[in-house]
Write a protein that binds this DNA or RNA. Structure first.
Lengths: 233, 233
DNA sequence: GCTGACGTACTTGTATGGTAGCCGACACCT
DNA sequence: AGGTGTCGGCTACCATACAAGTACGTCAGC
């Protein structure tokens, strides 16, 4: 990719979602530009886009900060994701070709392998591929970016919940159930199964919130972050 | 609002949706900066955001153009809007307070007045208010921006269909039906009524496509637009 | 008349300089 | 001691300069 801005944007986005950049930490245009070996311009433009996605908060003349996870945003993202994926699945039932089904089942097997190897990054990618493919089967691949943007808010917290590795087989089982019901052409049951699966992710986020409250924004908190104090002589 | 970028962004966005800036026309950073009396930077940053929304297409080293309406994008936007608004309406049934219902009915009356006065801009605003309020009643006000972004693709074409003014009472009637069924707490009928309403808008876009094909991107069209010829001496 | 090379004018992309505003630290006054 | 004014350093914002690239108009050559 020739475009510096896109490179910076993708890299920062990945780092934020991986929690490599911690919620609440400051992001200075100057520091990032120096660290990445580019000028401030593409960094700044990337931060503007990330602000639009809700992944960073920009306070003019004060600083840019990795946004803390806002419970209201999580609920909103979950609503968007659930509504879109379930609607797409309803359209997918009856439209799935044999090729679609074999591809989906291949993804399921790959997820099983990744779970056995404890390959978290691989499992995450395959999970994303699975859900994207499901929407594509319904003829709504072009709506996936909307889901992906909403998902970003959830994935930051989910990444922490996976060390509870014993859940992986459960997730794969739910995926399998969705595919089975899709093949059986039972729209209502398929949708309910998918909804249950997505809601499980939601409750995971709530668990993480209790275990890592520092990643979330308290309700009564002042929205204005503090600048880091200078070193005293 | 002190922020120049936001001002430029909102103004350009409004102009594009109003079709004041015609699909396919070139937008030069320099020209816009001169016209608006600001430098290239805020203009450029606005164009990046508009590109992210799908309202302009940026071709590096070639130019930036108001995007033609892509039928695939219209279908995608319609899917997103329908899924989200219908899901929100399902949640709204049974939650609507008397205050919600009176506010909604006040909006309906205002729409009737705007229709009588042939106040198109006013009717558009009230239509937007109505749908936003409907989602708020379901507790999903924060998901409205997602709908609004999808709606932008539809509204560009809709603006042309409204001179068929005789449709306005039909739209208001459908709005009224939704509120009636919401008050009657009939989720299935309310959802079906809203879906029919949204689909009508969708079919309007198709009508406009036949009457104004120049606003839409042909399927076999080369994606690379031509640069405007220079004046000869 | 037709074809192909080339120059020019335009575009967006990137880098850098200067400005207004905010916060924290600290001396000073009450 | 508690409040207040000022100063310094930092920030994002905006303006501007430079670089890389594309397409069109021109014109030489056939």
């Amino acid at each position: 990719m020739a475009n510096t801005r896109q490179q910076v944007h993708e890299q920062l986005r990945a780092r934020i979602i991986r929690l490599d950049l911690e919620p609440g930490s400051a992001l200075s245009e100057n520091d990032l530009a120096a660290e990445l070996g580019v000028s401030r311009t593409p960094v700044r433009e990337s931060l503007i886009l990330l602000g639009d996605e809700g992944l960073v908060d920009v306070y003019p003349q004060l600083g840019t900060f990795v946004s803390r996870i806002r419970p209201a945003d999580v609920a909103s993202a979950q609503f968007v994701r659930e509504a879109l994926e379930c609607a797409a699945l309803r359209d997918a039932v009856g439209r799935a070709s044999p090729r679609d089904l074999t591809d989906l089942r291949r993804l399921l097997r790959a997820q099983g392998d990744a779970a056995e190897d404890a390959d978290m990054d691989g499992f995450f990618r395959l999970d994303e591929d699975f859900h994207a493919r499901l929407m594509a089967v319904g003829g709504h691949a072009s709506a996936w970016p909307v889901v992906a943007q909403a998902k970003a808010q959830l994935d930051r917290a989910r990444r922490l919940s996976l060390p509870l590795t014993q859940q992986l087989p459960l997730l794969i089982g739910q995926h399998t159930a969705v595919v089975d019901l899709l093949e059986a052409a039972d729209p209502a049951a398929a949708e309910e199964s998918l909804r249950e699966h997505l809601r499980l992710v939601f409750s995971d986020v709530e668990k993480i919130r209790r275990r890592h409250p520092e990643l979330f924004s308290e309700d009564g908190e002042t929205p204005r972050p503090r600048r880091k104090p200078v070193a005293r002589p």
